[in-house]
Write a protein that binds this DNA or RNA. Sequence first.
DNA 1: TATGAATGAGCATTCATTCAT
DNA 2: TATGAATGAATGCTCATTCAT
Lengths: 223, 223, 223, 223
Amino acid sequence: MGRKPDALRERLRQERRREILAAAGRIFAQKGFEKATTREIAALAGIAEGTIYNYFQGKRDLLISLLGSLVTESLQEALTAELFNLDEQSFLANLIGRRLESITSNADMLLVLFQQIMVDDELRRSYFTRVFLPVTTQLEAYFQARMDKGIYRQTNARMVARATVGAFVMNFVVPTILGERAMPGPERKRLAGELVDFLIGGLAPRPAPTGGTALGLREGSKP
Amino acid sequence: MGRKPDALRERLRQERRREILAAAGRIFAQKGFEKATTREIAALAGIAEGTIYNYFQGKRDLLISLLGSLVTESLQEALTAELFNLDEQSFLANLIGRRLESITSNADMLLVLFQQIMVDDELRRSYFTRVFLPVTTQLEAYFQARMDKGIYRQTNARMVARATVGAFVMNFVVPTILGERAMPGPERKRLAGELVDFLIGGLAPRPAPTGGTALGLREGSKP
Amino acid sequence: MGRKPDALRERLRQERRREILAAAGRIFAQKGFEKATTREIAALAGIAEGTIYNYFQGKRDLLISLLGSLVTESLQEALTAELFNLDEQSFLANLIGRRLESITSNADMLLVLFQQIMVDDELRRSYFTRVFLPVTTQLEAYFQARMDKGIYRQTNARMVARATVGAFVMNFVVPTILGERAMPGPERKRLAGELVDFLIGGLAPRPAPTGGTALGLREGSKP
Amino acid sequence: MGRKPDALRERLRQERRREILAAAGRIFAQKGFEKATTREIAALAGIAEGTIYNYFQGKRDLLISLLGSLVTESLQEALTAELFNLDEQSFLANLIGRRLESITSNADMLLVLFQQIMVDDELRRSYFTRVFLPVTTQLEAYFQARMDKGIYRQTNARMVARATVGAFVMNFVVPTILGERAMPGPERKRLAGELVDFLIGGLAPRPAPTGGTALGLREGSKP
DNA sequence: TATGAATGAGCATTCATTCAT
DNA sequence: TATGAATGAATGCTCATTCAT
């Protein structure tokens, strides 16, 4: 019966799947969902057009699967355990400066997603529950915990979480998308610091009598 | 044979243009740019398909012209003179609570814009220079002025401006788009207040007991 | 407004519709429904492919409309008033030899119809109610009337009507379709006569004592 | 290494062939030839798609082979020796009521055949020589023999044979196909009787009072 | 022989745009 | 200017068939 062992077969299948998805991601990001053609995707993946349909239901399924990839690959790891052990600034700095940076690399893909989210109700629901809510909810939980410990003053944690993400996106992602010339690393770092400063400054329950620029918030999180 | 005076003729022409543009806006927002058809737009505008081409170069031109409308209609008035005479909280509260609220009504359209911005370089440049930069620059100027006066502590005003917009968008616009159920007016108002508080809290040069500018939010997160 | 008068416009439209339908009929008959391509139909009609869709909903709609044409063009006239005034043999001879002969010319088209009738429930229902039932019912009514008058002996008129059609089809239509070489006119005529003889022979209430070959059925339809 | 004896091997091969053919028949009848997919056929047969091609040349070959099956399985036995020993009515009644009834069960398949017969010349020739001619010829021979013996009056035996088949098909097969609700057994039987009566009535050489062969249907259509 | 992944030609349909009236 | 019929390029998807294992 000349069969490949099932394990190998499955591995190859997954590999192929990933290749197609990668190609689709590239083309989608480049042309937008509607303008992208399955022809092009197949060409980039180095396969025949029909082969796509052995792995995916159709063009739209490619986008949905891509959404799944984004979820598992980059966003879910946004708040790992280690992060929670850092002090406040470091946490946010890391979150913004390192973790969420992964968003930047997927920025065009994310935008493509937003394209379709406007139009496709199911996709919208899916994105909302699988990406937006989890991420903001985790961040919200983080802020809430800090507030409860008195490290931050009590306010609407969800609002803070969303504002944080928005502030980040508008400073780092949007300008890139809109074509502002790329920021050099150091400036990028400085900007991240300033943003953290700005955000934390507003959270400090009691600005230290003589703090530096912004935040003397570490002393006395509990009297 | 009873020619209309040029002035009237021109007025009618402008009127027709606006009607078509309005129809296009509705359809674009509803279906997305690619899915929208000129047939539908013409139908909604109550004209024949071909007539569109007497007023616009083509479908893409409709979108570009729509961008122009957005600029003049809603965004440029974001920072009017009167606003500058309000005190700090009121200013931001107004900005967020009233002015930028107009964004919400155009949210669909703006998203459609973003769709195409990803794909269309000219549109992107146009949007960047005509909308994004003006708005953030104005806001930046406002913050800079306040900083120079010592009302806010000195920091990166541009960053603050963008963060402010981002925080707003992520709290008010995105959830709406993603389909979170609509917020009732009072809650909406409260959220806006909390957001302003959060933003200003971080801007106050020295949130000492002597509440200078704005917010009495610093006293006692824990008694 | 440079309009063609509505009447002319409508006439042209109908004309074009007919042309497309004729082309579709030819191609369908030649290749079968599934194998026929809109490209070919458009080419034969001398129009662009897209134009078809200005007149019809799609390929299937072409077939359905064709069914409508068949109904109005050939089958409804199968039993006209004049026919009813002929004597019995003449009636059947005419019916078979002249009227139903039109079926032959549409034979391939009818077969295409049967193709799809197997597969398309709506088409089947449509054909059943719009073609099969009317034709057989009319014929049945004819036979019933003759039976009631005593011209034919009393039996199941519907069965007789259907048997008549079947006998005709199997002798004239099917052999043609299956590729038996075409019958010369005279032979055709003779066969029709024999068939009528055969059919009527079975209907005669009282076979004349000394009839010729087959039918002495005219004398004494009423004592 | 344990080769199967050729005989067994061959038997298994034939078995497999039959399974595939049966599956193809089911699917063809259900969906029509063009709409049927090899994937479905393979699935129903419980084999892989590629395996079909170890037994058949391709999809079209399935149909042609199916034609062969029909010939040998059902149609050739239409006129078996035993039948010839029955009296006239019984013969026809049997032929119609029992033998040709098998057509009904294969009606779907036969229609599918007709589909392709329109389009495929080779298939048409094959069907004509292998099915249509044999059946009608046999029947024709039967009628001719009866005519020669004086049991039926002399007329065109081929025409009678075809008319008989057509009358049967139009009364029993076509209505079923077209979706008329199924006839209950008794009614079915009665209809068959009426049809035979009708057919034989026309065949009786001299329907004199002295009912020769079969049917007492000539006496008194009106008292 | 059996498998099923890969293939790629082929097709119905859509839709922005043109242009004769 | 307004119209809307005509256009035809472009595209997602299907499916019979091949072939390496």
